[in-house]
Nucleic acid binder design. Structure first.
Lengths: 193, 193
DNA sequence: CCGCTATTTGAACAGGTGTTCAATTCGCCT
DNA sequence: AGGCGAATTGAACACCTGTTCAAATAGCGG
């Protein structure tokens, strides 16, 4: 046997990435085999290598795509530091709740990246953190905020906001906008003067 | 060949748990083989099964031991809710900075637990969260705190505090007591009335 | 120094790993 | 209708996986 009915690179390629996304998120990169991914796509393992050079690259592409899309999805707007901070918090929560699998992978699978790939993802992550730190520094300078250390405050806020993904489930007690509001309220007070 | 020189169950047993701890933390449960653990201990793979029934139990025992020790290490003291909250925050940071590998494993390897084991660990985790939520509820009732939702505030605070493990390195810019103070300051304000 | 038990080896089992590639078939263009 | 290239198979490679167990040796009490 060889080529299958209805086979096209434009459909199989995305299917491979999607299957990898779901399986990596559910079971973890190391616990998922190329044959499992192939089975989910409906293809033999060898065919995957038409769409990725290897398993590592499959992981890296998912993470890099996520981080670059995250960075492209928001810029610091004009306005007061407080308004900028609110925009950041709401966007962070919205964006993260929209793609829990990618977020989970980007956080949990860092240690499975080869060192060069790791450096790339860390660079992107740093750029994201720098946006928040810039806001905090501006607020600190203007007297709107009072944080002891902008670097730590940055990491603390991001950790707190990203934590929403560990418990939020669609159709639960709270709507997304409620969640946004509750977290923003805590962040606002935590940096207040 | 058979028994080795200087071999004693009391020394080999802990060595197995320690090797598993280091290797699971560095590479992840799924990526570490029993033969790697055995090599670190200085023993053949078969010998590990004198000290654990299987690989899964090795992971579970590490996580259960960690969570139970965490619960035993602190009780809510007498005092105002604010003082209780400060005690919780400072203890959480201190405890977590003292055993980064266990904390990392207990968080990252949840998905590698079989469902019964998972339920046990989740139960312990819930008991820990309940301590913090009790403090927040008391403060809310007395008017000392103003949080929109004590459950969310609990998870947000724990996520924020636990985040310290992702960046803190011994011998860095800040001493542990500085870190404690900075985080406590943010938490205090975030729940303030 | 003997004998007993605690401790470990090393081979074996049945299967799984990522990856490559010649052979084969499908879809499309002329 | 024919032929060509895109898409896929399936077998093979070399090795690793968790786990079991008979056989063998080390330590120790008498």
């Amino acid at each position: 046997m060889a080529r299958k009915q209805g086979s096209h690179a434009e459909t199989t390629g995305p299917k491979v990435r999607e299957a990898a996304l779901h399986l990596f998120a559910r079971h973890g990169f190391a616990a998922v085999s190329m044959r499992q991914i192939a089975k989910e796509v409906g293809v033999q393992a060898g065919a995957l290598y038409l769409y990725t050079p290897d398993k590592q690259t499959l992981l890296f592409d998912l993470m890099q795509g996520h981080m670059e899309h995250l960075l492209a999805s928001w810029q610091v707007p004009e306005g007061t530091p407080a308004a900028q901070l609110e925009g950041f918090c709401r966007h962070h929560i919205r964006y993260h709740l929209d793609r829990p699998e990618l977020v989970f992978i980007a956080y949990m699978e860092l240690r499975n990246l080869e060192s060069e790939n790791f450096a790339v993802i860390e660079g992107l992550r740093k750029r994201y953190e720098d946006q928040l730190e810039g806001i905090l520094r501006a607020g600190q300078a203007s007297g709107a905020f009072a944080v002891a250390d902008t670097k730590i405050a940055t990491l603390a806020i991001i950790a707190m906001l990203t934590g929403v993904n560990t418990w939020y489930r669609e159709g639960g007690r709270l709507a997304r906008s409620d969640v946004e509001g509750i977290y923003w309220d805590m962040v606002r007070k935590s940096v207040s003067a």
